[in-house]
């Protein structure tokens, strides 16, 4: 069942005397419970796509539908994890308050909020840091808080905009595993935007490769790796290397300006 449906999305930024067509014609669908990664060369309009899907940006034409309803503003049931973890947490609130704030706005009772916050913080391994302020935590931990906030929100779909681009390699591996395990355990739908080819293959059930700007979908690659993945064994599978090479080749083609055959 399709949960998130993007049809013929086009986005033109109106500049001073010069219009920039960032996204030309994007059509993609994400099924309920799927984990899909979107990769593309830098400047491919990945963030534009994500902002349109999140309802933060209005497309010039085409449409985005979540659960059958057109997205015109940030829809309920959608959580976003931004790349800039340091700027997406409220520095004047504690970790607990950060996770709890959206739940308050949802109108949940005190007991429910407490339970959801505790569970989410435990799930990301931050049960002991509920009363810290974000700036007292490392970058990786801050991004965990942002993930906990998204998880506690119980979204039907979670959008992630290059969430691990700004953390170190070891932390990144841990966080990738965290996303996989949360996705499997909670049955969420995840749309994960990244520029990292390895990351996209390791995480996703399906990788959508974008062309360069103005953006279209170049190819969709099904990732037929075992469901249980770990950093060591999965990444050394021959199939992983094949998929990785395939996506890599596509990205190179995209960079050279190759467009999908109509």
């Amino acid at each position: 069942m399709t949960l998130l449906d993007v049809r013929h999305l086009r986005k033109v930024y109106q500049g001073r005397g010069r219009d920039v067509e960032a996204v030309r014609d994007l059509t993609l669908a994400v099924g309920a419970g799927e984990l899909v990664c979107v990769v593309g060369p830098s400047g491919a309009g990945k963030t534009t796509l994500l902002r349109c899907v999140a309802g933060l940006l209005e497309g010039t034409s085409g449409e985005v539908r979540l659960d059958g309803r057109p997205v015109v503003g940030p829809p309920p049931g959608m959580a976003v994890v931004f790349q800039e973890y340091g700027r997406s947490l409220f520095p004047w609130l504690t970790v607990r308050q950060n996770v709890e704030l959206p739940l308050k706005e949802k109108g949940l009772g005190k007991e429910d909020r407490r339970r959801l916050v505790d569970e989410a913080l435990a799930a990301v391994g931050l049960a002991g840091d509920a009363d810290a302020h974000p700036w007292q935590l490392s970058g990786g931990m801050q991004q965990r808080v942002a993930i906990a906030r998204a998880v506690a929100y119980e979204p039907s779909v979670m959008l992630m905009d290059e969430p691990f681009a700004a953390v170190d390699a070891q932390t990144r591996a841990d966080l990738e595993d965290l996303v996989r395990s949360l996705w499997k355990r909670l049955g969420m739908t995840v749309l994960f935007v990244t520029h990292d080819i390895d990351e996209s293959v390791y995480l996703a059930e399906r990788v959508i490769v974008l062309s360069n700007s103005p953006t279209e979908v170049l190819e969709e690659v099904a990732v037929d790796l075992p469901a249980t993945r770990d950093q060591l064994t999965t990444r050394s599978l021959p199939r992983f290397a094949e998929l990785r090479a395939h996506v890599y080749k596509l990205i190179q083609q995209a960079k050279n300006g190759q467009r999908p055959v109509a």
Partner: peptide, 21 residues
């Protein structure tokens, strides 16, 4: 901060919470 504003919009904070938080 813009990212913080986006965060507040995504989690659909109401007028009051946006002002106070």
């Amino acid at each position: 901060d813009e990212v913080l504003r986006d965060t507040a919009r995504c989690y659909r904070l109401g007028r009051r919470a946006r002002l106070l938080r």
